[in-house]
Design a protein around this nucleic acid. Structure first.
Lengths: 137, 137
DNA sequence: TTTCTTAACTTGCGTTTTGCAAGTTGACTT
DNA sequence: AAGTCAACTTGCAAAACGCAAGTTAAGAAA
């Protein structure tokens, strides 16, 4: 299991953030939910990077425990659950935007999410607002 | 050793960023350099969180290989090396600023770097500019 | 000239986390 | 009664981590 928030609780705000989403997968899960509008376990499993099922379950639990996402039954599909970003999770939009902008500047290789990058470059405020409102950018 | 950039190279800008600094320690090292002005191995070892020496060595190598920092001999002290952020590294300032702002909003516990948080809240542009210019904010 | 000191690592080794594959659950559908 | 399917759980080998102890190299001290 992941390091729990607290073990390295130095009181530093960056350490706090890292204790919640500072691993290889959490931000990718958040990206799929915030940008691609993904809401189910099965869809998250099929993301671009191929997270394995046990790790995904761990991360979802950790994110839920830390107030980034919520989980509820899908009213339209008895066997499915719906994962959604909380306000706290959606407010990571600026962090995500800055990482995308930074990579856009420094990663010369061709990349996915060119559309998203352009959208952020064109109107960063709108990108963040839409995510903040629970919409796909 | 850390996952190398490439193994999960989905082409996503977020995945690119995570392959470079998406672990529990790299951003804390970058924080110490950018915000606290730390420049040596020994000072980095004594950071708030207590990174172990072998992990620190690994991360510094990884960050150097990925163009975030440089390493050179200290002209004033033959046995010391000076680590410095590159432009690419300093341009992570906005990412760091957003993480600090986010934590400031969502971490109710008392925290270190209150001064830095206030500085960013008061004048985010200045914070970023100073780091971009290689100065302590 | 031998010993000491010090910054920056490296090595060993036990513990923890990860990742792949296969198995489980439970309500509905056939 | 058997099949389906989303969402997990379990087992196990491989990789990464973390602590402690050891190494290196060159100038300073004795």
């Amino acid at each position: 299991m992941m390091k729990k928030a607290g073990k390295y609780d130095s009181g530093c705000p960056i350490a706090y953030g890292l204790s919640i989403f500072g691993d290889q997968w959490s931000l990718l899960v958040i990206r799929d939910m915030a940008i691609k509008g993904v809401q189910t376990y099965g869809e998250l499993l099929e993301g671009w990077e191929g997270i394995s099922t046990n790790i995904l379950a761990q991360r979802l639990k950790h994110l839920e425990e830390n107030g980034i996402i919520t989980k509820r039954r899908d009213p339209d599909n008895w066997r499915s659950f719906v994962y959604e970003l909380t306000v706290k999770g959606r407010e990571l939009a600026p962090v995500i935007a800055e990482i995308i902008l930074w990579s856009g500047r420094h990663n010369t290789a061709p990349h996915a999410m060119t559309d998203t990058l352009k959208k952020i470059q064109a109107d960063r405020g709108q990108f963040e607002d839409r995510i903040r409102n629970g919409q796909t950018p």
